[in-house]
Every structure is written in C-alpha cells, then in structure tokens.
Design a protein around this nucleic acid. Structure first.
Lengths: 261, 261
DNA sequence: CGAAATTTTGATCACGTTCAACTTCAGTGG
DNA sequence: CCACTGAAGTTGAACGTGATCAAAATTTCG
C-alpha cells in the first residue's frame, strides 16, 4: 500500500516547520534563532479551501508561513480572466509582497485546506533590527521569489505551452522537495487543471491536451491528483529546466576581523 | 528649445546617486548612512552599449548600481528566442539576483552606454550585519522587484498586446519619475522596438502595429526615442494601471521601548 | 555617402482560444 | 440503492489573433 507509506514519510517530517526547513538551505540557524522565530508567531490557523487569505487592493499586515496545503497568488482582470502569478507551497510566505505595500497588489486564495503560522509584519521587522540575519534571510527569500517569477516570465513570453507545463511541474516538484514534501520522482498536486491553466496563461482545454501529450510521450503518469515522473530527464529537456541553487548567506565578520576588512 | 531645458533639469538631479534617491522613498537615510553606502562602492565604471554585464550561467559577485543608462535582464532559449524579464533604469541593481545564486540565472546587457557604481556583494552583505537598516532596504528592493515581475506575469499571461504595451510604458515612466529622470508626461526611451517586443513577448511587427494604434488613438506621441503621453488617463485605463506605493520601512524600536514590546 | 540597423507595411498561415457537448466522479438526498 | 447535482476532466469543430516571412521605407552611424 504505497499510500500509507507516503503518509508515514510525510508525518515524520511534519515536526519541523517547513519555513525553518527552507531557511536552513541558505542560512545557519542556531537553536536560539529558531526559538526566536517561533516566538514571533502570534497564532496558528486553519484555512479552508477557497477562502481568500489576502484581497487585492486592501491593506494587509501579516506574514503567514504556510505549514500545510497550497494557495495561489492571483489577480482578476476587468474581462474576468484570472492570472495566477504564483502557487504557494509549504514554507512559502503569504503577505510577501502584500504587507510591504500600502495595499496588497494581489489576492491569495487557499487551493486546499491549509495550516498557517501567523506573524505580525511589524513584529518580524522589529526582530530584523535585533537580528540582521533575519533581515538578510528575508532578502534572500525575496530574491529567490523574484527569480522564480522571472522564470515564469520567460515561460509565458517565449516558451511553448508544453514547455511551460513541463517547467511548472518540475518547479513545483523541486520546491516541494526542498521542504520534504515530495518523493524523488513523484508528488501530490491537489490542484485543478483550471488553476494550472490560469498559472500558465493557457485555456483549460489546451492545458488538458498538453498534459495528455506528456502522458502519451511517457514522461509522467497522473492519477488521483498525484504526479509521477516516469522520464524526468526527458521532461527537463522539454522544459529547459536548470535549477540554480541559492547561495548561502555569508556569516557575519567576527570581532577583530572587522578592522582587517 | 525644450531639449536644453530638459538637460538642465536632468543635470540638476545628477548630483544625487539615483540609487540613494530611490532608497529615500522608503527608508530614512542619515548623512552617515549615505556616506557608508558611498564607501562601499569600489569604483565607478562606464559600460558601452551592447556589452554584457552579466552572463547567464556564470558566477557573478558584484552589485552594480545603475547611475545612468538602461540595461536589460534576459535569457536566450535554445530556439534562439529571447525573453527580456526586466529593463533596468537608473537606481536599479545589476547583480540582483545574479550574485545571490551560485550562477547567474540571467544575462544583463547594456541597452545604452551606461554609468554604474560597482560594489562587492560580500562587502554589501557585511555592511548589512552592521546596519540592519541596509539589510531591510535590500529586502524592500527585492520585494519591489518581485512585485514588478508579478505584474509582468499578468501582462504576459492574460493581457492583450495593446494592454501590455500601455502597461509597460506607464511602468517605465513611473520608475524613471521615481529617480527624477522623467517629466510628468514624457520621458526618453532609448530602446529599440525589438527590445520592447522581447520584453512583452510579441513579434516586432505586431509591437509596431500596437504602437501605431496607441498613436492613432491619440494617447501618445513618439519621436526620436522620446515618448510623450497625450492622454495618460486613457492609457491607464487601457493598461489597467494602478500604482501601489511601497510602504516605508518602520524605524527600529527605541531603547526603552524594547521592554514594552 | 554607403552600409547597417531599425521601423513600417502587407500577405499568409498556424496555433491556441472559444464554445459546446459529453464523460467521469464525489457528494447528497430521496 | 439509485437518481440527482455540481465540479472537474476530456474531446471536437470553427474561428481569430498574432507569428512568420518578405520587402520597402526610413533612420542611424561609420
């Protein structure tokens, strides 16, 4: 029963907040740092599917660390079309960029039931003054995010629909892996094709056709909202996929070294 | 002679680095802060048109503040197509995100002759530990950038070519204004239509047609690489343009208050 | 002035949207 | 248990937008 195996594997990882798991990829966190981060969290909340977490055009002053579930950052245009700019996975932050602007420039909606850790924007910034390391971590996260967006721009501007789709699937997989929520060649993708098409700037029927094509070409198998890569290499070639790794934040210069530098 | 008026207006602003001008929109800089920033700059350089500043796939460890001129961050795909993810204007930073990753994920090319202030990535980060304010400023810049990218994603995914073009022109104008390099309804745009089409994911002929259309509908006038808006309101409607302003970075909590918080 | 780059215009065609019908499936109430 | 409902996935046919290719006009620059 592969299903229950999966569940056990997942549960064993749940103990660590996906947010700190993610941070540890590029910054050294002392137990004290981790504790401080925990203390910044005001409360934990559950959000049910389809609930809007952030609404385009309204002020928003929280930072929410996604602990479980997925969400989408999007904008709806006059003509009713929707563009999703980003799918949020565990370890991602709701309220970035929303809480840095006077009014949130995008809405965020829960795509599944979610668990989030809520922190006041002000409290986090205040902590950044006390621990510059946190401020740098924030920069790193924002830069990583911008890079993700840039890649999506390339997708939408110059890549064909099938390339976009392949790229999207590999990207989500890589991001889930980073927080221990995906197997080496498979992951749960509990989102509808409508969401994917709004992410990739395609119509639902066309997205469906492209998905069918990837299946026919034996690159992946999809069943009950679970994706299994059967030829990940071929998929990477189709997608022009290249994963750049985020450099680590350099440690602060020690006292004494300062004079030398 | 409006030409020389313009030059005088520009020159009077040149004394201040566009980078600090931009920072001042969201952070309080003491004279000492400004001085520290200046001291981080290793040297100033001139770059000629068409020179690549950063090359996709290679390590890059500088942060360059654009003082004058424009550049483009782009990626070239296997099929030879190019997508520009971002046009850099004075006050922008070359090497963000490049210097935060092991290898730069994009190339950056000078679209005009440029003047840049070069700073070592490490030196800047070291300064961030000493002055958390700088680290926060970096976060703010990265967030602003991500927001810009997100808007471009919406453009490419769901907006029509004419909407994209209108949006692009308004965006560049707003960004130039922020650093004092544009008049209320006009600005120099020294870039070819090929660059614009690669930015907006369009073919050159189609971009040209859309530009003609905006001209025919009396929304703008273009002559010798200068754009003059004649009906900025109409243009904003076409573009769905809404400028969100970046919140200011909260000041650090004063000694004494710390205990209360 | 000549050469190269850029802008403009036109004709054709393919790709992806649109619209519609139909299927499948999960949840719900009779 | 099955009929009913609504959401999501799948398939097909027709249309239109924007790409492509080509060539001319114009500007820029060596």
């Amino acid at each position: 029963m592969p299903g229950s195996d999966r569940k056990i594997a997942k549960l064993s990882r749940r103990w660590e907040s996906p947010f700190t798991a993610r941070l540890k990829h590029f910054v050294d966190l002392t137990p004290d740092d981790v504790e401080t981060l925990r203390s910044l969290i005001e409360y934990e909340a559950r959000v049910e599917r389809r609930r809007d977490l952030v609404v385009d055009g309204y002020p928003y002053s929280k930072l929410c660390f996604v602990k479980d579930g997925m969400a989408a950052r999007y904008k709806v245009l006059r003509n009713g079309k929707r563009q999703i700019v980003d799918v949020l996975v565990p370890g991602d932050i709701v309220g970035l960029p929303g809480s840095f602007l006077d009014r949130a420039p995008f809405s965020v909606i829960a795509l599944t039931d979610m668990k989030i850790e809520v922190c006041a924007h002000d409290a986090f910034i205040a902590a950044c003054y006390r621990r510059p390391k946190f401020a740098l971590a924030l920069s790193w996260l924002a830069v990583q995010h911008a890079t993700l967006y840039a890649e999506r721009i390339v997708d939408l501007g110059r890549r064909t629909p099938i390339e976009r789709l392949a790229h999207f699937l590999l990207e989500i997989h890589a991001r889930l892996r980073m927080v221990g929520r995906a197997e080496p060649a498979a992951f749960d993708l509990p989102i509808s094709q409508e969401v994917m098409s709004d992410t990739l700037g395609l119509s639902v029927p066309h997205l469906n056709r492209m998905l069918t094509r990837l299946r026919n070409e034996r690159m992946l198998v999809v069943s009950e909202r679970r994706v299994q890569f059967t030829d990940i290499r071929a998929l990477e070639v189709v997608a022009h996929f290249q994963s750049a790794t985020l450099a680590r934040i350099p440690a602060p210069i020690q006292r004494g070294q300062e004079l030398i530098a």
